[in-house]
Design a protein around this nucleic acid. Sequence first.
DNA 1: GTCTATAAGTCGATAGAC
DNA 2: GTCTATCGACTTATAGAC
Lengths: 227, 227
Amino acid sequence: MAGTGGRAGATRQRVLEATLGLFNERGFGVTVAEIAAACGMREGNLHYHFRKKELLIATLFERFQEEELAVAEAELGDAAAAESYAEYQLGWFALMWRYRCFYRDAFNLQHRLPGLKGRFMEVQARASAAVARVMALATEHGFLAIPAGRIRSFVTNVWIVSSYWMDYLRTSTASAGLTEQQMQWGFGQVMALFEPYLTPAGRAAFSPLAQRAAALVMREDEPGGRG
Amino acid sequence: MAGTGGRAGATRQRVLEATLGLFNERGFGVTVAEIAAACGMREGNLHYHFRKKELLIATLFERFQEEELAVAEAELGDAAAAESYAEYQLGWFALMWRYRCFYRDAFNLQHRLPGLKGRFMEVQARASAAVARVMALATEHGFLAIPAGRIRSFVTNVWIVSSYWMDYLRTSTASAGLTEQQMQWGFGQVMALFEPYLTPAGRAAFSPLAQRAAALVMREDEPGGRG
DNA sequence: GTCTATAAGTCGATAGAC
DNA sequence: GTCTATCGACTTATAGAC
């Protein structure tokens, strides 16, 4: 760790984190000057670490995809416990929050780096299949009752609502940042999709989990922070 | 009509349509040079008709909002007939297709013209309330059976899936343009949200309508066309 | 109304000193 | 590794001839 990538790796890491923060706040349109300023360095120096702005985006994107796969394909602790499913969903929300720029500004991203689409599709297919498997497990253990033929479209709708509720909220409300209350709201919207398919056992187990889960997601964002 | 706004109005109209086509295809990032070329005129001339690119976006946006209200608050022909609800939904899909740039690239839009947000929120609130009223009608007439306390979150999820399925499809599939088959797919995803809440009567009435409706939306796009 | 020509600004990227 | 200085490409916007 020290030899080739010691201090250099640390700076690189710092730049990536600061850039992700700016992308999340203002989209991929932020200028390299702004990124450099946020890193406390000059443009020239930033170009020393990342020769092109697109390299910055592509690096963050690859991390995002790796973490998405990890979240999607995470093993459930105990498939018979309702908490396991809430934690699984919680993992998704944390990921979506951390890399919200990729969810919100996907059009811009694809326009800038069309070459990333293949990787994006590959990961989405794998992740989506993993989610479907978790749904099947929940069905097996009596939490969900969803006709087999509808799992596919159901998973897709869960994916769409999960991916875009933040953008919906941003465009339809006045507030700027995301509050814990809004995070709970988003969790509630996703849970509402499950509602009609929950068994009585499932309903009893999942309903109280939403609030706790949303609170956890927000807490993860506190430490670092800008401003 | 001839005096002050005759030919000038026609040119204005032509410019707006061409611009909308470009925005739909490639987003608000298209340059004024490209817009001018698509209109068969030079940049200077385009600036004569619309002094700023933002004026072009704002004008299209206001039209979009007006049409959205008209679609949302359209009267149902016969609230007792299932076809009326399919036509209502069809109106929404046609609108979303015609103005898809505003759905897909909302983040970019808001970044460029932050002043539009107020109007956007106002229209969305009115439109959303109108949709909720239609849902209530469908419930009254025995097509839908949805608990009163869940209508709100349900309408929101219908709104989210309706608004973003095109973007989801664009990012998760290889194809470039939207085919009639994809339009049907989107219609199906929205219908899937209704599925668990349909009464037997509702299910019998709505299921066959999706295909016909999607086909109609696509047909509207054929005449004009680029390429 | 339409054109040419050009001003003015922004942004990404590079060269080279320290 | 970090800085200053500057280039070159691109985009918006304007002036003025026709």
